[in-house]
Simulated assay, not measured.
Amino acid sequence: MSKQEKLYETLGELLYAVAMADGVIQSEESDAMKSLLKNHPWATTISWSFDYEVAKENKVEDVYKKAVSYCHSYGPTPEYEEFISAMEMIANAHEGTSNEEAEIVTGFSRDLIARFRRDLGIK
């Protein structure tokens, strides 16, 4: 598996964490996911990863930590902007963004920025 393929597998994990943040994946979130992946070049990888987490019924916190850990090791990349937009799209799909969903989306940015700043020695 290439590093980029693993990165997009991580996006599937993040989308799972957002969709499951409130305890259940809503049909609107599933529809948003289908729309997001319709013409995406990594759709198969993202979908496989998301479906894997659904099938395993993994805890949101564990999946989120695993995804962020990989992003930390991958390092800074412009793809994270796409990831945040995708997470926001899923979070907004059903009656707006819940507090739990918002925490995952904002936490992703905060966690990555904090880690990369530490890696660069920036306070």
Rank of each mutant, 00 (worst) to 15 (best):
E88K: 00
S27A: 14
K38T: 12
E100I: 00
S98L: 10
I25Q: 12
H40W: 10
E61D: 15
E81V: 09
P41F: 14
E57F: 04
A67L: 10
Y70M: 07
I84K: 00
I46W: 03
M89Y: 13
P76W: 07
W42K: 10
Y74I: 05
A91C: 08
I46S: 06
S73C: 00
I84S: 07
T44F: 03
E100W: 01
Y80G: 04
V68E: 05
P76E: 15
E61W: 12
T77C: 10
D51R: 12
T97N: 02
F83N: 00
K59F: 15
E81W: 05
E57G: 05
K59G: 15
K66N: 14
E88Y: 00
E28G: 04
L36I: 10
S30D: 11
L37K: 06
A32H: 01
E95W: 03
T77I: 11
P78G: 12
I90T: 01
V68A: 05
A91W: 04
K66T: 14
Y74S: 07
E95T: 04
E95P: 01
I25D: 01
N92H: 13
W42P: 08
K59D: 15
A102I: 02
M87G: 02
P78Y: 02
Y64L: 09
W48K: 06
F50W: 01
T77H: 10
S27T: 09
V68T: 08
K56A: 14
P41N: 13
A43C: 11
S73W: 03
T44N: 12
K59W: 09
E95Y: 01
S85D: 08
M33A: 11
S69Q: 08
N92Q: 11
A67W: 13
W48N: 06
F50A: 06
W48R: 07
M33R: 05
H72Y: 13
L36G: 10
M33Y: 01
S30C: 09
A55G: 11
A43I: 10
G75N: 05
Y80T: 05
S27W: 00
P76L: 09
G96A: 02
V54A: 06
S27D: 06
I46K: 04
S69Y: 09
Y74C: 05
D31V: 14
W42I: 02
T45A: 14
C71R: 01
A55I: 06
H94R: 04
H40L: 14
A55W: 02
E53V: 03
S85Q: 05
V68H: 07
E103R: 05
G75P: 03
E101I: 02
A102W: 08
E101L: 02
S73T: 04
H94G: 00
L37P: 07
K38I: 13
P41M: 08
D51H: 07
N58Y: 06
M33D: 03
N99P: 06
N99K: 13
